Amino acid sequence: MSQQRVAVVTGATSGIGRAITGRLVQEGMGVVAAGRRAGRLGELAEELAGQPGAVLPLAGEMTQPGHTEELLAAAEREWGAASVFVASAGRGLPGTVLGSDAAQWRELLEVNYLAVLHQLRACAAVFTKQAEADGGSQVRDIVVIGSTVGRQVSAANPVYGSTKFAVHSLVEALRQEVCALNIRVTLIEPGFVRSGFQEAAGYDTAWFEGVAAASGPLLVPEDVAEVVQFVLDRPKHVHLDDIRLRPTRQKA
């Protein structure tokens, strides 16, 4: 493991985060797989046993202060300093400005915005310290999973979309702040992805199947994971900083 990169992936219990973890482990990385459900993380570690890389499952809440630092410290104890951090944890919220459940707004903002802001700050601080020590000789990557609704306003899903708009601006601002140290901060903006995300957030199943019929075949988490791997594999002087991927038939 000493010659391979080390990564932290949040939201690894399901969907895109789980697929990214699997892809990186298959490529030989040591990955701290973070999420709220310890049982699901344990299952993932068992599933990936025998791959070229390795998984260290670590359950916790991304909204808790200091959790990002704990994940990075765990990676360093296990394999050495991480040079990849993927922020994939997040949740959805169906409904319009008038129709969404106002009782869930605060949690949505805490999970999708404030927790990500803390992750970016904590990870960038650690990576900056490391880069200053080695003169930026090693490339380091922070990858954030955004959404196409964080770029194109959706009247049908605006509260969730507004959190992604906010995160997208943070990603670009941080990119500008740390790029001189060869720290690449990348935004990935998927369109419709068929995963457990919609069901967990309470989106209407019939509506989603209508979307799939009109715009499908939809993306699957492995499509996003493949793009993340491609970004990480670019030479140190090349940065694909903002990538949108949609089902070919998705219009907006």
Rank of each mutant, 00 (worst) to 15 (best):
A102C: 12
I20H: 05
T186P: 04
L181C: 03
E132W: 07
P57S: 10
D242Q: 11
R40A: 00
R249E: 04
L44Y: 13
V159Y: 10
Q3M: 08
A89S: 07
H237T: 09
R194G: 10
G11S: 08
G210A: 15
Q4F: 03
A213M: 05
Q152M: 07
H118N: 14
V9Q: 10
K164P: 00
G11E: 12
G60W: 07
T163G: 00
Q3W: 09
V9C: 10
D241T: 13
E132G: 01
S137Y: 06
T248E: 13
K164T: 13
A180W: 04
R106L: 10
E222G: 09
V178D: 03
A81G: 07
M62E: 03
W207E: 04
S100E: 10
W79C: 05
V111D: 02
Q152T: 03
L44T: 03
A212R: 06
T68Y: 07
L187I: 05
V178H: 02
V126T: 15
L218N: 01
R37H: 14
V86C: 04
H237F: 13
I142P: 01
E209R: 15
G90Q: 01
E78L: 13
F85T: 08
S83N: 09
D241M: 13
A73R: 11
D242C: 13
S169H: 03
E189R: 12
G99T: 12
P217H: 08
V126L: 14
D242L: 14
G11M: 06
G191F: 02
V25S: 11
G210H: 13
G216F: 00
E110M: 06
Q4T: 12
L48I: 11
A156L: 08
L219M: 04
V153M: 04
V6L: 09
F208T: 05
G146A: 02
T13A: 15
V220Q: 06
T163P: 01
G210F: 10
K129F: 05
G42V: 15
L98E: 14
R106T: 11
Y113F: 15
D233V: 15
A124H: 11
G146L: 06
